[in-house]
């Protein structure tokens, strides 16, 4: 669980929107970032890139660029939602070093009791501009965002065996079902329409650009290493909440809309 409330210790999966309105348990607004690989450590690795306000950890779930070249350079792997990209997804979980053969995504997600009760997926659709930004990636990278999402599927899907199996079966097959294709297309919008099929898109650079663009949208501040930051100005501008304090070792404080009396946009 990459995020933890430093008041009560409650953890949140990376990409959780719950914490953006304060800790549901204690109301605290101070969180620390805990990459999945150092779950038990009280000091997260500051060199790990993270997205404090936002969505996805580049080391874990944001793997389209990682999986890009090896999968299939030609037919736009990130958007070829049928065969290659999907099985790669679960294996990119930082918890599991194993990748490639013998993958068993059903058992890959580490059981995490605190988050099992969380519904990280549920608040997302109503929360700010971020879901709009993160959904296309999930839809683009996975055939079925409801079943194989590496972030949301991390914990709460663990006991949901049936959809996982379905997703795997689907992922191993060559052709995506019309239903899934339709859903993925709807999720990604017009940008992915042409590449939503198994046919290669017109031009690879266009897809790469789009992927880069999408990746950029997921983070407002990327901590490259202590003292080195990359900022996504559009994301910072678009957010209602914003980071008011970055601290050492992955801690940060966000200002919440409630605190300044803004109810909606």
């Amino acid at each position: 669980m990459p995020h933890q409330c430093i008041e009560c210790g409650r953890t949140f999966p990376d990409g959780s929107k719950e914490m953006l309105s304060g800790c549901p348990d204690c109301g605290g607004n101070k969180f620390q970032f805990k990459p999945a690989g150092v779950m038990d450590s009280s000091e997260p690795d500051p060199t790990t890139s993270k997205s404090p306000t936002g969505s996805k950890s580049p080391t874990g779930s944001r793997s389209p660029t990682d999986s890009d070249p090896p999968t299939d350079p030609d037919p736009a792997p990130g958007f070829d939602s049928s065969s290659e990209a999907d099985p790669e997804r679960p294996s990119s979980d930082p918890e599991e070093p194993s990748s490639g053969p013998g993958r068993s995504p059903d058992t890959t997600p580490p059981p995490d009791p605190p988050a099992s009760s969380d519904p990280p997926g549920s608040p997302a659709p109503t929360d700010g501009p971020d879901p709009a930004g993160s959904r296309p990636e999930r839809a683009a990278g996975t055939a079925d965002p409801d079943t194989t999402d590496p972030v949301e599927g991390d914990a709460e899907r663990i006991d949901d065996e049936e959809p996982e199996d379905t997703a795997q079966a689907s992922a191993r097959s060559d052709v995506v079902s019309p239903d899934e294709l339709d859903r993925a297309t709807r999720e990604t919008g017009s940008a992915a329409t042409e590449s939503g099929s198994v046919e290669p898109p017109a031009s690879q650079p266009g897809v790469d650009e789009l992927r880069d663009e999408l990746n950029e949208q997921f983070e407002s501040i990327k901590i490259v290493s202590p003292g080195q930051y990359e900022l996504n100005l559009m994301e910072l501008y678009d957010r209602q909440e914003y980071i008011i304090s970055l601290q050492e070792d992955g801690r940060y404080v966000i200002e919440m809309p409630d605190a300044w009396g803004v109810t909606d946009e």
Partner: peptide, 25 residues
């Protein structure tokens, strides 16, 4: 020194976030 530079860097990053927020609000 490095410690001051890192702190300044962190504060500058917060400052940019704040500036963008002010621009919006």
């Amino acid at each position: 020194d490095k410690e001051d530079a890192v702190r300044r860097s962190r504060e500058a990053t917060e400052g940019v976030a704040e500036a963008m927020h002010w621009l919006r609000e």
